[in-house]
Design a protein around this nucleic acid. Sequence first.
DNA 1: ACGTTGACCTATA
DNA 2: GTATAGGCCAACG
Length: 119
Amino acid sequence: MEVIKISEKHRDFFSMVYAVVQQVPEGRVTSYGAIAKYLGMARSSRMVGWAMNAAHHQPFYVPAHRVVNREGLLTGTHHFGSAHRMAELLSNEGVRICNDQVENFNSLFWDPASNLALD
DNA sequence: ACGTTGACCTATA
DNA sequence: GTATAGGCCAACG
């Protein structure tokens, strides 16, 4: 087991990412870019993925399986322990997965910018 | 300290 | 429609 250390500076950013991911309803999915854009880091969407990497080490639950890339492709399946873990979780929520690809992704897509109010 | 990598996205051809 | 290039910024060797 490796422990991923999170810099104090980015603790906030990570927390914000987790907060958004936790708002994603069951049976719905969102993308890294949408989260990054919502947090004002549209050009640093890779950091969202890095935050997901550390999500497993967080004390609270983070439904990282509901976060996919902009094509609706499950790119992070290898980081879920088993390759089919992510697809299983999504399938359990009613999301049809075919070859690591979310079906009807356009309808299942949940955009935080359109569902969360910006204060 | 430098180069490479990465759960990505946008732009251009 | 696919293919290639560039950018982004933190973590790792």
